[in-house]
Design a binder for these strands. Structure first.
Lengths: 209, 209, 209, 209
DNA sequence: TATGAATGAGGTTTCATTCAT
DNA sequence: TATGAATGAAACCTCATTCAT
């Protein structure tokens, strides 16, 4: 491994350190209340250094979402070509979502919040492209499976994109909603059951009779 | 009508003016980019005046959500005691949601975003109570109908609260997701179709076979 | 009594009401933290009305001091022509101070604080004249008694004004200092003893041997 | 001198720069009329920088008083163990006070004004502790000397703390009063003579016959 | 005379970002 | 590459004061 590569790797590692620190701080305080200084301090770096790795606060924040979106995309795509039934694939999708929710519910929520007009502007084109790329990757995988299901006569004969939209949207919605109820009521235990019930219903609703 | 009443009404109207102006500005810029001065100027008032009607920016913003949540709750509750079938009631719920989405999608989204830990703190107790009140009002109405459906053997035998959660959460999720796709792709026309498909699937999934 | 006089009296009474309310609020919160609205509400009036009786907040505040200064001056002057010894007169001065301190220590302190360059400017000439008038009235009375004492050979042969200054200044100083200690230590009981000791020492120090 | 020490010194110097600028502005305008922007500009810094060194306006202001109180305490303590008579020590106290008054009468006045309930709250605990510390340091030194004088039979047989209170309070009172007269009459020349006379009287009054 | 809603200037404070070292 | 002190723009909010009723 040459010096250049080692440096690249070192740089990449440092980037991940920052992202990790940022995840902690953003999760705890939300986008606006989190300060760059706090994140820097959590990463054991100085504020100035953050700007060597990220153009600004916005992009640092978005990177979190992209990271998780990327992971989501990868995991979802893994499912597509597995040698299992369509229904099992859909169930795997559910498990991926739950697993990601477990890993960091706050950032997942941030991801779904990303759409607030406020956030979506201000992003550099490059970042926006990435966002779209990973988003459509995950989305495409789901569409593929849904299409497979429709063609096999297992799912109702709707436009596959529409069905995939519903699937994804409902996932996201349940995550958000469930999280909101958790905040308002200080209850935690119903999160996963509700997620599972939701998925069950949606899948059942998609099935052709 | 006495002087006192006239004044009350005048005051109420002024409050609504401010809320209207705030809706416009918040919708266009998002919470953080919107400034009180901008809102005041949109309401043709001076900044100081806003603070006669709302304790701070946060509460003004939340008032928007409360307003729409209240409307949602009222409309949903109207449905409960109508002399129609359970399925028709659920469909009415769907129509209410779509109608509210049409009225002001941005604020509806704000409502569902309200949960971000960041926002939920800083609210005065009174406002938080209202939020909970209208939220549980709407929620309760849905639960009642779902329970009715389960008892009539129309819906699957799940815990009514869980089913209602799923219904509501999926509504919210679809709204958010669909909106996010609209922003990312600058497409608008698929919003309502997707909403309808989603509701169809969810309702179908809830039905006992 | 004619209508004009009745109105004058009515007006004067209202003025005093406001001053009373202001005393309460200023005492509790200090000049800057007290708001005109609070004072108005304490006087069961509306903010606007205050401005019919006082040009601005500053003057309202100063009126308190003038009021107490006037009272102080009157009481001190009463002493001058009483048929008692010089030493008894000086002791009466002490009692007047203690009595006024008892009546409203906060405003007395405000009076002594009045000098802060900040406050002293911004006063209308009329008010400033009053301040000087009552101040020199009280001061003059003390000087007269001190002079009497010097001439009788009871007090040391210093310039009477200088002695009077010392007397007055020490009074004021003890009041302020003692009050400051009260605040810092939450002790209250040593106020009057210290005042008395101070006066004893000063009087004793003024005496010719 | 290592880099760390140089930085510390640099930082300390910057702090003093700010304090100096603040002294000028606060002295000229008083606490409320002075603005942070003005102080920053006087220190040739930007407003934000002030907040790197002081938590807020209040603490910056208090720092001035603490500074002078510290100096006062140090100078007063120096006197205690000098090999001079009790009376000479008391006279040294007087000189210290006069010297400090000469150095910056405005801030000395601020120090004595600090007690206004309004100001005393809002201070961080740390600052309050410092205030108490230096205050009781100076006070303690005076008490020690007074006690010495009483035990030597030079001073009247009062409680030493009470005598010290009177001494200190009268000092403070004379400073404040004299200053107030200066403001009201635009005379300056009588300040020091009055101060001296006051101290003479008080000391004389404390003496046992 | 009394009201009290409205004003709007102005201050404090925060914090993302820069740049000299 | 890393630092972290300094920046300074910009926002929220307060509140003395006004004025139409």
């Amino acid at each position: 491994m040459g010096i250049y590569e080692r440096k690249q790797r070192e740089k990449e590692r440092r980037r991940e350190d920052i992202i990790d620190a940022a995840r902690t701080v953003f999760s705890a305080k939300g986008f606006n209340s989190a300060t760059m200084e706090e994140i820097a301090s959590a990463a054991e770096l100085s504020p100035g250094t953050l700007y060597l790795y990220f153009k600004n606060k916005e992009e640092l924040h978005t990177s979190l979402s992209i990271n998780i979106l990327k992971h989501l995309g990868v995991e979802i795509q893994k499912v597509v070509h597995q040698d299992i039934s369509v229904e099992e694939k859909i169930e795997r999708f559910r498990d991926v979502f739950i697993e990601v929710y477990d890993y960091d519910s706050n950032i997942l929520i941030n991801l779904f919040h990303l759409q607030s007009g406020e956030t979506l502007h201000n992003l550099s084109d490059e970042v926006l492209q990435q966002l779209k790329k990973y988003s459509s990757q995950a989305h495409g995988a789901i569409i593929a499976v849904v299409k497979e299901g429709i063609e096999a006569g297992i799912f109702i004969d709707e436009h596959p994109v529409a069905l995939a939209d519903v699937l994804w949207a409902s996932y996201a919605g349940v995550v958000l909603w469930v999280d909101s109820k958790r905040l308002l009521n200080d209850q935690k235990d119903f999160v996963k059951p509700t997620l599972k019930t939701a998925f069950k219903i949606i899948i059942q609703g998609m099935k052709a009779k």
